[in-house]
């Protein structure tokens, strides 16, 4: 059974996210056939929008078939919402066409920038949190929501550097964006942990400073570990390892606060076999089913 009846969300983010409150997996071309053949019991599939901005061929063929079996999350990685330059209008229209071709249950993007002028840098780069940036990010999100005709979920970033120019905390910045634009929050628990360790702050305090009522979806992923020149622990959001125990612990605390929530196991590099991904999904699914909201 691909998706039996699931608990539904009762929060404002419901408008932005129609996924069931179950665990989903990222869709990779390596898994097209095995997913169709075995139909594992997962809650949804997530794709990166930019990978599907092609005209035809196997990507659209398999996505079309899998969409009949699973709800779909479309996750953008190229809009560059935080860029100083204007949004790329052509890219936004390509995105609109993709969402019309494969209507998803949710669309999400990142609090980051990835382009400068005509250059595309293909990484989620960090923002200085100040008032001009806040105004620009809000204007860009409103433009995206108006063009797509739907609210989006905005993902909190994993960062390795902080700017001298910042005058707001990251959590304050996110609160104001959510409040002003009406967008929901894609809460990446791994990003919370990575960012807080990298900048020496408390992950639970960070979590509690976020507008948790706006959480429409969660990402869980693994990080890899490094150190900076001073020997300070530096975590890298690599999406290439199992989810860390500390991130599982933070996820349990989040579930106590928000209740069952659609959750993606995000694994993009050094892909393990499908059974390993399904085992990670099972762990998260068990936590969702066991969670009791603490008021």
């Amino acid at each position: 059974m691909p998706h039996p009846a699931a608990p539904t969300l009762h929060r404002p983010a419901q408008a932005a996210c129609q996924l069931p409150a179950r665990v989903g997996l990222g869709l990779k071309p390596e898994h097209f056939r095995s997913l169709l053949d075995t139909c594992p019991d997962i809650g949804f599939l997530e794709i990166h929008a930019e990978n599907y901005m092609v005209e035809g061929g196997p990507f659209h063929h398999y996505l079309g078939l899998l969409r009949e079996k699973y709800p779909l999350s479309i996750h953008g990685v190229g809009l560059s919402i935080g860029a100083e330059s204007a949004l790329d209008h052509d890219h936004l229209l390509r995105l609109k066409r993709l969402l019309e071709r494969h209507p998803p249950q949710v669309f999400s993007e990142h609090l980051a920038w990835s382009s400068h002028g005509p250059l595309f840098l293909n990484d989620l780069l960090p923002l200085a949190y100040d008032v001009p940036t806040l105004n620009r990010v809000c204007a860009h999100i409103e433009q995206v929501q108006d063009t797509l005709g739907r609210p989006l979920l905005l993902e909190n970033p994993a960062t390795y550097l902080q700017f001298r120019a910042s005058t707001l905390d990251e959590t304050d910045f996110i609160c104001q964006v959510v409040h002003r634009t009406g967008c929901g929050l894609l809460l990446d628990v791994n990003n919370v942990y990575v960012t807080c360790i990298n900048h020496g702050s408390d992950p639970l305090a960070y979590l509690d400073a976020l507008p948790l009522q706006a959480v429409g979806q969660v990402h869980l992923a693994g990080f890899s570990e490094d150190a900076d020149d001073t020997g300070q622990r530096l975590l890298i959001d690599s999406h290439s390892t199992p989810i860390d125990d500390a991130v599982w612990a933070l996820y349990r605390l989040l579930l106590q606060r928000v209740g069952p929530v659609p959750t993606l196991i995000e694994w993009d590099n050094d892909l393990p076999p499908m059974h390993f991904l399904l085992a990670q999904a099972r762990l998260a699914q068990d936590l969702i089913e066991a969670c009791e909201v603490q008021s």
């Binding site: 840098l121 293909n122 990484d123 780069l125 960090p126 390795y160 550097l161 902080q162 700017f163 001298r164 120019a165 910042s166 990298n198 900048h199 490094d226 900076d228 020149d229 001073t230 300070q232 530096l234 890298i236």
Partner: peptide, 21 residues
């Protein structure tokens, strides 16, 4: 530009991500 300690080594992560991708 950055207030973080040893910004050069931290900036290398972004540079590696951009070019390796």
């Amino acid at each position: 530009i950055f207030s973080s300690p040893s910004p050069a080594s931290r900036f290398t992560i972004y540079r590696n991500n951009v070019f390796s991708s």
